[in-house]
Amino acid sequence: MNPKPQSVEEYFSWFSGEILEKLQSIRDTLRREIPEAKEVISYHMPAFRTTEVLVYYAVAKNHIGFYPTNSGVSEFKKELAPYQTSKGAIQFPHDRPIPLDLIAEIAKFRLLEAKERAVKKKKKA
């Protein structure tokens, strides 16, 4: 069974070298681009959350997974063409640079989407 981190710091402590540098660059990018989001552990992965979880990310054997939900993948389908994707996931291979500009754009899109959803929810209430 996989270990379950209690914090983002604990999760990061499991890695070193280039993998840790890549994780930290993703974290720094997300902190900068969506500063109102809170860092949390969700589904045993680091994530950024406002009214909902915007994005998750995690290390896998051959890649770093980035999980911006289905809309985050479908909205950037053209830009994500060089990467392996599925319904709500993107794989960034360990042997290639992390596309931080693309991660930033996806995160900002998800923040806007979450804000719009929260406004709609409030109007219904």
Rank of each mutant, 00 (worst) to 15 (best):
P68C: 07
P68S: 06
T69Q: 09
N70T: 15
N70D: 13
S71C: 11
S71E: 15
G72F: 03
G72Y: 01
V73S: 03
V73P: 01
V73N: 02
S74G: 05
S74E: 12
S74A: 13
S74L: 10
S74H: 13
E75A: 15
E75S: 11
F76K: 00
F76H: 03
F76N: 00
K77I: 06
K77D: 12
K77E: 14
K77A: 15
K78M: 11
K78D: 13
K78F: 12
E79R: 09
E79I: 02
E79M: 03
L80V: 01
L80N: 00
L80F: 03
L80G: 00
A81V: 12
A81C: 12
A81T: 14
A81W: 08
A81H: 11
P82F: 09
P82E: 11
P82I: 10
Y83V: 06
Y83F: 15
Y83T: 06
Q84R: 15
Q84M: 14
Q84W: 13
Q84F: 10
Q84T: 15
T85R: 02
T85K: 03
T85A: 05
T85P: 07
T85M: 01
T85I: 10
S86F: 12
S86M: 10
S86V: 09
S86G: 11
K87C: 12
K87P: 09
G88Q: 05
G88Y: 05
G88V: 08
A89C: 10
A89Y: 05
A89R: 06
A89I: 01
I90V: 14
I90Q: 00
Q91L: 11
Q91C: 15
Q91T: 08
Q91H: 14
F92Q: 05
F92G: 03
P93N: 04
P93E: 07
P93F: 03
P93I: 03
H94I: 10
H94L: 14
H94N: 12
H94W: 08
H94Q: 09
H94P: 02
D95W: 11
D95G: 09
R96N: 14
R96L: 11
R96T: 15
P97D: 10
P97H: 07
P97W: 11
P97M: 12
P99Q: 00
P99H: 00
P99E: 01
L100Y: 02
L100I: 07
D101Q: 12
D101I: 05
D101K: 09
L102I: 12
L102T: 04
L102D: 07
L102E: 06
L102Y: 08
L102M: 08
L102Q: 07
L102V: 04
I103E: 05
I103V: 15
I103M: 08
A104F: 04
A104D: 02
A104I: 05
A104Q: 08
